[in-house]
Computed example of a mutant assay.
Amino acid sequence: MTGPEVLALYAQESLSTTGLQGWIQNNIVPLVLLAIAIILLWIGGRGDNAGVARRSVGLLIGLVALGIAVSGNGPQIGNFLASLLVG
């Protein structure tokens, strides 16, 4: 077998993005959540409670979207939401 044939065979059998997805879920997501918490505490410490409330609503929507993306249940959730509107 030549080099490209071995590479093509290896690529067909074992290459995937599960390692990268796992690393992002285990490392990047907690760091983002920690940064969000620190920013909200900093804003709240300045006495801008209305600003914290405004940002928290947007963050909750973003975290719901992140949870749907990470869980892989997007189509099921979309079908459920569509059934609420259509019946």
Rank of each mutant, 00 (worst) to 15 (best):
I43W: 01
G58D: 07
R46Y: 01
N49A: 10
L7Y: 02
G3E: 14
G67P: 03
I68F: 06
W23E: 15
I68D: 04
V86L: 12
L66S: 05
L34F: 13
S56M: 15
Q25C: 08
V64H: 00
A35R: 09
D48M: 09
A65F: 10
A53L: 08
L33M: 10
G72E: 04
L31N: 14
E5K: 04
L60R: 11
I36W: 14
G62P: 02
A69W: 10
A69M: 07
A37E: 14
I68N: 04
L60K: 07
A65W: 06
L85Y: 09
G3A: 10
I38S: 08
R46G: 01
V6R: 10
G3H: 04
G19V: 09
G72L: 02
A53Y: 01
I28Y: 04
G47N: 04
V29A: 11
T17D: 15
V86H: 10
I39E: 15
S71R: 11
I24L: 14
T18K: 13
L41N: 03
W42M: 08
S14T: 07
R55S: 08
Q21Y: 05
V70R: 11
G62I: 04
V64R: 01
L7M: 07
M1C: 07
G47F: 05
I36C: 12
I77A: 03
V86F: 12
L66P: 00
V86I: 12
L9M: 09
G45F: 02
L84S: 03
A8R: 11
G58Y: 04
E5H: 01
N26E: 15
L81D: 02
G74L: 05
P30L: 12
G62Q: 04
L15D: 06
G19D: 15
